[in-house]
Write a protein that binds this DNA or RNA. Structure first.
Lengths: 348, 348
DNA sequence: TTGTATGCGTTATCAT
DNA sequence: ATGATAACGCATACAA
């Protein structure tokens, strides 16, 4: 028997079961006050007709979609792949489905997210911006639920989940200093003047050096450039070619660290014997590179769960939440993960 | 002035502009035959009211959502992160938005995708199954547009895009043989009896060995286990601990290869001098590990674009496509990417 | 070139 | 416990 292409509606089910539309709706939505007989009859009709609720119609009627949008630079960057994984997971636990968008570091694309139609078709948006920042604060005043993820835009007129970037940068440097390194190079300093992850981490790093009375050699600071592996490799190469001889390298993300370690290995420079390297993000890959790379774990799952929780409150799915609450800022704690790229062989 | 929370509808715009609903609709949808005056008046009203089309209502009316669903094991696996990236990109080029779902290798979750409501709220589904395969062929007979991605289920009652797994496995082995390796180990042989990537790649690998008259030592075949880095490391360790002394290792995906190389490096085994290693997938990470790992490039972008194109045809967005077309199977070409894990240092 | 009327499939408000 | 009927916001025959 050929399956009919157009699917059955509630009306069809109602007719087949000899009940009204409302009754079918009641059955479908688990309304408790139903006579077992009617319920059975309706369920019978549903399965025999292969009826499924039309989610779009339900959405129209209820004014919500059960969808949230996640906007990241690009999924092929391991950090964002892992972040998306955690967000999809956290959203799923709350019955929400995630719709994905990539902005590929394009400022216009990022601004588009904040335009009024950026929230259409979804109940809310999680946004991980790169080139839209402090200077655009007002653009974040949108009329749909929005939570900023991972970037630090202070005083933005919307909720915001991030990690303690300053303290993270400080911890990176303190770790190397604690291991006796003194000629510390830095890879990943951005040239954007506002409050980016890069500037914050750098702020912490500089503070740690100053606190220890160690001078930061400007010749040992490399950047800017996208935070991807090839750039890490190139910046490391440039440093070495310029005659710089660091004994420790702080990279402001793991991709840069992976590129840097790659370049060092290629040149036969021993890590960490000659140069210790520490990254930032704790992507899975750092644990399986050789040597495994020390890094800062920003608590990706915690960030994702917190961001989804905040968004859910803004959407209005939590009774206990006061909608007049002002913009909130949550800074998640991190931890330093020490591996062989700084510690050396550990009696494997 | 406080922005009203409930957004304006076409009716509001029509009233404000002193025209009918239909006219507003015409303006919004770019209907060409409009007097410039009316058009201007409507646009004025639209912007002053901050009107945005209600996508849900439009979807209900038009019977489609502009959404497709991508189901993968998990996004934190680099291969699937990169695949999702390409799918989102390809979908975007066709005006479709991607909704994400993870099945985390859970068979029930995979079967759920194929249940009748798996396609609700979306126009079509791209599905990358793992534990649902040949034996479940009939389950793939669903009443929504569906394209299987990357897994080889032959004769399934739906479209299917994959790569030439058998030839890929053969190419891996031939590459090692061509470099003079004879004691070839294999990592990643699955124990599922049906047509999985693993079995197909293995089939090609075995064929290549036989064709060359090289015996495959059963003691050199490792598996099963999830295709992730720690498993690659463990299987490599087990091989070495068992006293096996391969001079080449074929891994059926890159994560296994990365784990294996990691373990070899940890033990001070030289790659490729002592043991050459080749992976499969060409994830970006293989190019930045040390040494860079030779691999098979399955043409991820091509696969994604082809899968989206097929899905678009099934959805009915292509006039030229005959909807009565039977299930199609597309095998994308691959290429071998030779790097230092098999070639050795190349005069860096 | 523009307006009127109807329906997409569902849920909600009243009834009974 | 169930039914009749009216929205939700939009697009489209059809009419003018």
């Amino acid at each position: 028997m050929a399956r009919s292409r157009a699917s059955a509606t509630m009306k069809d089910v109602a007719r087949a079961a000899g009940v009204s539309l409302k009754t079918v709706s009641n059955v479908v939505n688990g309304y408790p006050y139903l006579s077992p007989a009617t319920k059975a009859r309706v369920e019978e009709a549903i399965s025999s007709l292969g009826y499924r609720v039309n989610v779009t119609a339900r959405n129209l009627r209820q004014g919500s979609t059960g969808l949230i949008k996640l906007v990241v630079p690009e999924l092929r960057i391991p950090y964002f792949g892992e972040l998306a994984d955690s967000v999809v997971e956290a959203a799923g636990r709350r019955g929400l489905t995630v719709l994905l968008q990539q902005h590929r570091y394009d400022r216009e694309a990022e601004l588009g997210v904040l335009r009024s139609d950026g929230g259409s078709q979804v109940d809310g948006v999680l946004f991980s911006p790169v080139h839209v920042g402090q200077a655009d604060a007002e653009a974040f005043r949108v009329d749909f639920p929005l939570v900023i993820l991972g970037e630090s835009i202070f005083g933005a007129p919307c909720d915001h989940v991030s990690m303690r970037n300053i303290e993270g940068g400080r911890a990176q440097v303190e770790h190397l200093l604690g291991l006796g390194r003194r000629r510390i190079a830095i890879i990943g300093l951005s040239d954007v003047p506002d409050v980016s992850s890069s500037r914050l981490r750098h702020k912490g790093a500089v503070a740690a050096l100053e606190a220890a009375g160690v001078a930061l050699d400007p010749a040992l600071v490399a950047g800017p450039g996208p935070w991807v592996r090839p750039v890490g490799a190139r910046l490391m190469a440039d440093l070495l070619d310029s005659g710089a001889r660091p004994d420790g390298v702080v990279c402001y993300n793991d991709a840069l660290a992976l590129g840097a370690v790659h370049e060092l290995s290629r040149r036969g420079v021993r890590v960490p014997d000659d140069i210790a390297v520490i990254g930032f993000d704790n992507v899975e890959e750092t644990n399986y590179s050789w040597p495994p790379i020390s890094t800062i774990d920003p608590g990706r799952e915690t960030i994702a769960a917190a961001a989804v929780a905040m968004l859910v409150e803004r959407i209005g799915l939590e009774q206990s939440f006061d909608p007049s609450t002002g913009p909130r800022e949550l800074l998640v704690d991190f931890r330093l993960v020490a591996r062989q790229s700084t510690l050396g062989a550990t009696g494997g």
